[in-house]
Simulated assay, not measured.
Amino acid sequence: MNEVLNIADQTLILHRHPRRKNETFQAWDSADEYLINHFNDSELGQYITDDGQLLIINDGFGALSCYFKDFERTVVSDSFLSVGSIKLNMQRNRCGPESLLIQDSLQSLPTNAKVVLIKVPKTLSFLEYQLQQLSAVISDDTIVVAAGKVDAIHKSTLALFEKYIGTTKTSLAKKKSRLIFSLVDQREIAETEIATTWDIERQGWTIHNHANVFSRNHLDIGGRYLMDNLPEGDFTKVIDLGCGNGVVGMAAAEAYPNAQITFIDESYMAVDSARINMLKNFEEERSDNTRFVVNNGLVGFKGRSYDLILCNPPFHQQHTITDHIAWSMFNDAHFCLAVNGELVIVGNRHLDYQDKLERIFGNCELIAENKKFVILHAVKME
């Protein structure tokens, strides 16, 4: 797997994080290369004046952050893993942190961006949120260029750039990627509430979902299946791992009223949605027994400390389909569970999580199944 990006006048060593022994995916793609080459060919650096800066949105693993190290820049991401990759790749390539500000997607964008480079995200609603935020802080002389894989750029994608930024056109495709150019048009745009709110009637809950949270318009059927199959027991320390909007952890808070519930996700928007949902739907005193953590799984958590971990693991990272995040979650869970502690997961039938859990825990029980999902239960034996 290639870890060296030779582009324009620079050579960068870039790794995806968390690193795997036999990594098969690069830490950059052709859309990163297209953006960098266009920036140089069009001499966009000349527009970044002393009182202005470069704004980079959705840098995946740090290729853009590292390449543009000579510019004052702000990098915006909703991914804890991406932020960690950017920081580590900056160190690896000896890029000083002085001219770089990294912020999450819930923070306000800088008002002095002269050039904006965007990697098109997977979720259309998240793109709309970002473009809406961007439209409020740019001016007519701001240059906006986006890039993405050809199969990720649709008419609906371009329509959002037209709506929030201005007249939009695309480039020719190169290496299966395409650029998007938008001329800033400072027209009045009615602000739209992109976060969604919907009800779960059975529990009487109102659910808030930020723009980049999985299953944002309705209850995820996998999550519902897990909620309906929580184990019986007197659990005191419970984790909702990969919590999304927090509904599984909320069901645990209902089922185990004396337990401390920890909500963990690598998305800043997901963890904030879970926090809002607990605040809105539970009595105030329950907040003393809940924690909300943006993190790479359970990295840094104390071993042998929890008696129940609930998990609806993702099978993709950004645009890449992969099972390594699920593997990592299961290994983390085994480390963090106390002896006789339990892991309960929901997964698509075809993902073969049962074999993984057998290999890690030495045991795995199928406790429920339907045409699409299985609920699996493993116990920490030693």
Rank of each mutant, 00 (worst) to 15 (best):
C336V: 11
I360V: 15
E342K: 13
E342F: 00
Y353G: 01
H350A: 07
W327K: 15
T322I: 10
F335D: 14
K356T: 05
L357D: 03
D355R: 14
G341F: 08
I345G: 05
R349T: 02
D332F: 05
D355W: 00
A326M: 13
F361P: 08
F361S: 01
L343W: 01
V339C: 10
G362M: 10
R349W: 00
N348C: 04
K356M: 09
E342D: 06
T322H: 01
N348L: 06
K356I: 02
R359S: 12
F330V: 11
Y353N: 04
V339F: 04
F330C: 01
W327V: 15
N348P: 00
S328R: 15
V339A: 12
L357R: 00
N331K: 13
V344E: 05
H324I: 13
M329S: 04
S328F: 08
D355Q: 13
T322F: 00
S328V: 02
F330Q: 00
N340V: 02
G347Y: 00
G362I: 15
A333C: 12
G341V: 08
L337N: 10
D352I: 02
G347N: 10
N331Y: 10
D352S: 09
I345S: 11
K356L: 06
K356V: 04
L357Y: 01
A333W: 01
K356H: 13
D332P: 01
C336E: 03
N363T: 09
D332L: 01
A333H: 03
I325T: 13
M329Q: 10
A333S: 15
N331V: 07
H324C: 11
L357G: 03
H350E: 07
G341P: 02
G341Q: 06
N348D: 07
A338P: 02
V344H: 13
N331A: 09
A326K: 12
K356C: 03
A326Q: 11
S328D: 14
Y353I: 06
D332V: 00
V339S: 13
H350G: 00
H324Y: 14
D352N: 13
G347F: 02
L351G: 03
I360D: 05
G362W: 14
G362L: 09
I345E: 06
L357T: 02
I345T: 14
L337Y: 01
F330G: 00
G347R: 03
F330P: 00
N340F: 07
V346N: 05
V346E: 03
H324A: 08
E358Q: 15
S328E: 15
E342L: 13
V344R: 15
H350C: 01
T322Y: 00
G347I: 05
R349S: 05
F361R: 03
Q354V: 11
K356Q: 09
F361N: 02
I325D: 03
G341H: 06
A326F: 10
S328T: 14
D352R: 12
Q354N: 09
R349L: 04
F361E: 02
H334Y: 12
A326I: 09
R349D: 00
Q354F: 06
N340W: 03
A333L: 08
D355V: 11
N340K: 15
Y353H: 12
I345Q: 06
A338K: 15
D332A: 02
L343S: 05
S328M: 14
G347D: 04
F335L: 13
Y353S: 07
W327R: 15
H334L: 11
